[in-house]
Amino acid sequence: MANELAEDAAQAGGGAVTLADPEFLVPLRRQMIKFATLQLRDPDLAEDAVQEALAGALKNQRFFGGRSALKTWVFAILKNKIADALRQRSRIVTASSLGDADDDGETFAALFDARGHWHLSEQPAGWREPEASLRETQFWHVFEACLEGLPERQARVFMMREFVGLDADEICKALALSRTNLNVLLHRARLRLRACLENHWFVEGLR
Protein backbone atom coordinates (compact mmCIF):
# COMPACT_ATOMS: atom_id res chain seq x y z
CA MET A 1 0.00 0.00 0.00
CA ALA A 2 2.61 2.50 1.07
CA ASN A 3 4.81 1.40 -1.80
CA GLU A 4 2.04 1.96 -4.25
CA LEU A 5 1.38 5.40 -2.88
CA ALA A 6 5.00 6.34 -3.20
CA GLU A 7 5.08 5.07 -6.73
CA ASP A 8 1.84 6.81 -7.61
CA ALA A 9 3.11 10.03 -6.15
CA ALA A 10 6.32 9.73 -8.09
CA GLN A 11 4.47 9.04 -11.29
CA ALA A 12 1.90 11.77 -10.75
CA GLY A 13 4.66 14.28 -10.19
CA GLY A 14 6.26 13.24 -13.44
CA GLY A 15 9.43 12.62 -11.46
CA ALA A 16 11.07 9.47 -10.31
CA VAL A 17 11.58 7.55 -7.13
CA THR A 18 14.29 9.21 -5.11
CA LEU A 19 16.57 8.21 -2.30
CA ALA A 20 14.94 10.85 -0.12
CA ASP A 21 11.87 8.64 0.11
CA PRO A 22 12.14 6.71 3.38
CA GLU A 23 9.81 3.99 2.11
CA PHE A 24 12.47 3.24 -0.41
CA LEU A 25 15.59 4.10 1.52
CA VAL A 26 15.05 2.14 4.72
CA PRO A 27 14.71 -1.35 3.22
CA LEU A 28 17.35 -0.54 0.63
CA ARG A 29 19.82 0.42 3.31
CA ARG A 30 19.09 -2.78 5.21
CA GLN A 31 19.81 -4.89 2.14
CA MET A 32 22.98 -2.95 1.46
CA ILE A 33 24.22 -3.51 5.00
CA LYS A 34 23.44 -7.19 4.78
CA PHE A 35 25.32 -7.60 1.56
CA ALA A 36 28.31 -5.45 2.57
CA THR A 37 28.62 -7.32 5.87
CA LEU A 38 28.63 -10.61 4.04
CA GLN A 39 31.44 -9.43 1.80
CA LEU A 40 33.53 -7.53 4.33
CA ARG A 41 32.90 -9.58 7.47
CA ASP A 42 33.20 -6.45 9.55
CA PRO A 43 30.11 -4.51 10.63
CA ASP A 44 31.97 -1.20 10.92
CA LEU A 45 33.58 -1.47 7.52
CA ALA A 46 30.26 -2.52 6.06
CA GLU A 47 28.52 0.45 7.65
CA ASP A 48 31.18 2.79 6.25
CA ALA A 49 30.92 1.34 2.76
CA VAL A 50 27.13 1.69 2.75
CA GLN A 51 27.30 5.22 4.14
CA GLU A 52 29.80 6.26 1.48
CA ALA A 53 27.81 4.62 -1.26
CA LEU A 54 24.60 6.37 -0.20
CA ALA A 55 26.36 9.70 0.20
CA GLY A 56 27.84 9.32 -3.26
CA ALA A 57 24.45 8.37 -4.67
CA LEU A 58 22.75 11.36 -3.06
CA LYS A 59 25.40 13.74 -4.31
CA ASN A 60 25.01 12.52 -7.85
CA GLN A 61 21.29 12.03 -7.63
CA ARG A 62 19.87 11.18 -11.00
CA PHE A 63 16.39 10.52 -12.15
CA PHE A 64 15.34 6.97 -12.61
CA GLY A 65 12.05 5.75 -13.93
CA GLY A 66 11.58 3.27 -11.14
CA ARG A 67 12.75 1.61 -7.99
CA SER A 68 14.60 -1.22 -9.60
CA ALA A 69 16.71 0.99 -11.86
CA LEU A 70 17.63 3.24 -8.95
CA LYS A 71 18.45 0.26 -6.80
CA THR A 72 20.66 -1.30 -9.43
CA TRP A 73 22.56 1.95 -9.68
CA VAL A 74 23.01 2.30 -5.92
CA PHE A 75 24.26 -1.28 -5.69
CA ALA A 76 26.76 -0.61 -8.48
CA ILE A 77 28.17 2.21 -6.35
CA LEU A 78 28.23 -0.07 -3.31
CA LYS A 79 30.12 -2.72 -5.28
CA ASN A 80 32.86 -0.19 -5.95
CA LYS A 81 33.04 0.82 -2.30
CA ILE A 82 33.31 -2.82 -1.24
CA ALA A 83 36.01 -3.45 -3.81
CA ASP A 84 37.96 -0.42 -2.50
CA ALA A 85 37.60 -1.55 1.10
CA LEU A 86 38.79 -5.05 0.25
CA ARG A 87 41.77 -3.75 -1.70
CA GLN A 88 42.81 -1.28 0.98
CA ARG A 89 42.77 -3.69 3.85
CA SER A 90 44.58 -6.72 2.70
CA ARG A 91 43.91 -9.71 4.89
CA ILE A 92 40.96 -8.25 6.68
CA VAL A 93 39.75 -11.73 6.89
CA THR A 94 41.93 -14.50 8.08
CA ALA A 95 41.28 -17.89 6.63
CA SER A 96 39.78 -19.14 9.87
CA SER A 97 37.13 -16.43 10.03
CA LEU A 98 35.83 -17.61 6.70
CA GLY A 99 33.50 -19.90 8.53
CA ASP A 100 32.79 -23.49 7.75
CA ALA A 101 35.37 -25.79 6.36
CA ASP A 102 34.88 -26.39 2.70
CA ASP A 103 33.17 -29.41 1.29
CA ASP A 104 36.28 -31.59 1.00
CA GLY A 105 35.62 -32.81 -2.46
CA GLU A 106 31.98 -33.61 -1.82
CA THR A 107 31.05 -31.47 -4.85
CA PHE A 108 33.31 -33.44 -7.14
CA ALA A 109 32.15 -36.83 -5.90
CA ALA A 110 28.53 -35.84 -6.43
CA LEU A 111 29.12 -34.78 -10.03
CA PHE A 112 31.89 -36.98 -11.43
CA ASP A 113 32.73 -40.67 -11.36
CA ALA A 114 36.11 -42.06 -10.38
CA ARG A 115 37.54 -41.45 -13.85
CA GLY A 116 36.37 -37.85 -13.81
CA HIS A 117 33.45 -38.28 -16.22
CA TRP A 118 30.07 -36.74 -15.46
CA HIS A 119 27.64 -39.02 -13.69
CA LEU A 120 24.95 -39.61 -16.28
CA SER A 121 22.31 -37.62 -14.43
CA GLU A 122 24.67 -34.72 -13.79
CA GLN A 123 25.75 -34.01 -17.33
CA PRO A 124 24.97 -30.35 -18.10
CA ALA A 125 21.96 -29.99 -20.38
CA GLY A 126 21.34 -27.36 -23.02
CA TRP A 127 19.49 -24.34 -21.62
CA ARG A 128 16.98 -22.69 -23.88
CA GLU A 129 17.14 -18.90 -23.97
CA PRO A 130 18.80 -18.47 -20.60
CA GLU A 131 19.10 -14.70 -21.06
CA ALA A 132 15.32 -14.35 -21.00
CA SER A 133 15.36 -15.66 -17.43
CA LEU A 134 17.14 -12.54 -16.23
CA ARG A 135 13.91 -10.63 -16.72
CA GLU A 136 11.87 -12.95 -14.55
CA THR A 137 11.43 -12.23 -10.87
CA GLN A 138 11.09 -15.91 -10.05
CA PHE A 139 14.49 -16.61 -11.57
CA TRP A 140 16.14 -14.24 -9.10
CA HIS A 141 14.53 -16.06 -6.20
CA VAL A 142 16.06 -19.28 -7.44
CA PHE A 143 19.41 -17.63 -8.09
CA GLU A 144 19.51 -16.17 -4.60
CA ALA A 145 18.49 -19.47 -3.01
CA CYS A 146 21.21 -21.29 -4.97
CA LEU A 147 23.81 -18.75 -3.84
CA GLU A 148 22.71 -19.11 -0.25
CA GLY A 149 22.94 -22.88 -0.59
CA LEU A 150 26.66 -22.75 -1.41
CA PRO A 151 29.18 -23.39 1.34
CA GLU A 152 30.12 -20.02 2.78
CA ARG A 153 33.64 -19.80 1.39
CA GLN A 154 32.51 -20.71 -2.09
CA ALA A 155 29.72 -18.15 -2.08
CA ARG A 156 32.08 -15.53 -0.81
CA VAL A 157 34.82 -15.93 -3.40
CA PHE A 158 32.31 -16.36 -6.20
CA MET A 159 30.65 -13.06 -5.36
CA MET A 160 33.97 -11.27 -4.88
CA ARG A 161 35.02 -12.43 -8.31
CA GLU A 162 31.83 -12.21 -10.38
CA PHE A 163 29.69 -9.63 -8.59
CA VAL A 164 32.19 -7.25 -6.98
CA GLY A 165 34.61 -7.85 -9.82
CA LEU A 166 37.93 -8.23 -7.99
CA ASP A 167 40.65 -10.11 -9.83
CA ALA A 168 42.17 -13.33 -8.55
CA ASP A 169 45.25 -11.70 -6.99
CA GLU A 170 43.14 -9.20 -5.12
CA ILE A 171 40.94 -11.92 -3.69
CA CYS A 172 43.90 -14.05 -2.62
CA LYS A 173 45.42 -11.06 -0.88
CA ALA A 174 42.19 -10.00 0.84
CA LEU A 175 41.46 -13.50 2.12
CA ALA A 176 45.02 -14.78 2.56
CA LEU A 177 44.26 -17.65 0.20
CA SER A 178 46.70 -19.42 -2.05
CA ARG A 179 45.99 -19.26 -5.74
CA THR A 180 45.41 -23.00 -5.80
CA ASN A 181 42.87 -22.68 -3.03
CA LEU A 182 41.05 -19.92 -4.79
CA ASN A 183 40.91 -21.89 -8.03
CA VAL A 184 39.41 -24.89 -6.27
CA LEU A 185 36.82 -22.76 -4.46
CA LEU A 186 35.76 -21.01 -7.65
CA HIS A 187 35.61 -24.26 -9.60
CA ARG A 188 33.37 -25.85 -6.98
CA ALA A 189 31.19 -22.76 -6.63
CA ARG A 190 30.60 -22.61 -10.37
CA LEU A 191 29.84 -26.33 -10.61
CA ARG A 192 27.35 -26.18 -7.76
CA LEU A 193 25.65 -22.99 -8.77
CA ARG A 194 25.27 -24.22 -12.32
CA ALA A 195 23.82 -27.53 -11.19
CA CYS A 196 21.45 -25.79 -8.79
CA LEU A 197 20.13 -23.45 -11.48
CA GLU A 198 19.70 -26.35 -13.86
CA ASN A 199 17.82 -28.46 -11.31
CA HIS A 200 15.62 -25.70 -9.99
CA TRP A 201 15.08 -23.44 -12.94
CA PHE A 202 16.15 -24.80 -16.29
CA VAL A 203 14.54 -28.20 -15.72
CA GLU A 204 12.28 -27.91 -18.76
CA GLY A 205 15.40 -28.04 -20.90
CA LEU A 206 16.19 -31.47 -19.54
CA ARG A 207 13.63 -33.61 -21.28
Binding site: R67, S68, W140, H141, E144, E162, F163, G165
Partner: peptide, 12 residues
Protein backbone atom coordinates in the same frame (compact mmCIF):
# COMPACT_ATOMS: atom_id res chain seq x y z
CA UNK B 1 26.04 -12.39 -11.11
CA UNK B 2 26.65 -8.98 -12.63
CA UNK B 3 22.95 -8.33 -13.15
CA UNK B 4 22.09 -9.54 -9.65
CA UNK B 5 20.74 -7.03 -7.17
CA UNK B 6 20.61 -8.53 -3.67
CA UNK B 7 17.07 -8.81 -2.35
CA UNK B 8 15.48 -7.37 -5.49
CA UNK B 9 13.35 -10.41 -6.18
CA UNK B 10 11.62 -10.10 -2.82
CA UNK B 11 10.98 -6.38 -3.41
CA UNK B 12 9.43 -6.87 -6.79
Amino acid sequence: AQAYVPGAAADD
